[in-house]
Design a protein around this nucleic acid. Sequence first.
DNA 1: CTTTTTGTTCTATCAACATAGAACAATAAA
DNA 2: TTTATTGTTCTATGTTGATAGAACAAAAAG
Lengths: 110, 110
Amino acid sequence: MTMAVLYHHPVPEDITLLPLLRAVADPVRLGIICHLHSLGEANCTTLLRGRPKSSMSHHFQVLREAGILHTRVEGVQHHNTLRLDVLEERFPGLMASILRECPTSLPENG
Amino acid sequence: MTMAVLYHHPVPEDITLLPLLRAVADPVRLGIICHLHSLGEANCTTLLRGRPKSSMSHHFQVLREAGILHTRVEGVQHHNTLRLDVLEERFPGLMASILRECPTSLPENG
DNA sequence: CTTTTTGTTCTATCAACATAGAACAATAAA
DNA sequence: TTTATTGTTCTATGTTGATAGAACAAAAAG
C-alpha cells in the first residue's frame, strides 16, 4: 500500500493579502489564473505551454498555498480550480478586478 | 539656473495590471499605500519609520511608475498621494479591495 | 554665503525566487 | 509485469529586486 499525494488548502481565515498578491504578481501565474478562469478546471499538463513540468508544479504550489486554487486528485491527474467563492468572501472584488483584465483570446505565453 | 526634479506619471492607458500588482505585492509598499490612504498626502520623510531615505525613494519610484501614486513637488518637499480616481477608472474595485485590508491602527512596520 | 532639510542617484551587496534538469512516486494501460 | 502518463521533489543555477551607505542636487533658512 502506498500513499496518494495530499495537498493542504488553507482555510479562508488563513489566506492573507500579501502572499496572495505576491502569488498573482507573476506573469506565468497570472496566465495560469486566466486560463483556469476560462477553462473552469485544468490539470498541469494542459497548461504547460512548453514549460518544464517542474516549473509548473512550482507555480501551482505557490497558487495553492496562497489560497488561490484548489487541487482535486483523481487518479494520476490533478485537477485545479480557482477558489473564487472563498476569495470573494475573503477579499471582495479583488479577483473580479483581476480576472476582468484577462485577455479574451489567450496569448502564447503568460 | 538649475533644474527642479520632474517626475513622470503614466497616463491611465499606460498603467498595466502586472507592474501594478508587483508594486503592491511588497510589505513596505503596501504599508506606504495604507499610510497614504489614511493620511491623504505625505512626503518621504513622514513615512520613513527608521528606514534609509534611499530605500524609501526607491519604493516611491516603483509605486509612481506603476501608476499608483502621484508626486507633487513643492519646494524641497515632495508630496505623495494615491491616484485612486485613476486606478478606479482603470481597474475598478481593485484598490478598494486592497485598502479594505489596511489596519485601522497602523503597525510599527509594513 | 553657509548651513540645514529633503530627496535623488549611484553603487555594491544580499536574499528571494523563477527556471529547469534529473530522479522519483503513483496510477493507469498494454 | 512492463510501459506510459502525470506530477512532485530535489538540487543547482541565474536573475531579479530589496537594502543601504555615500555622494550629490535643490531649495529654504540663518
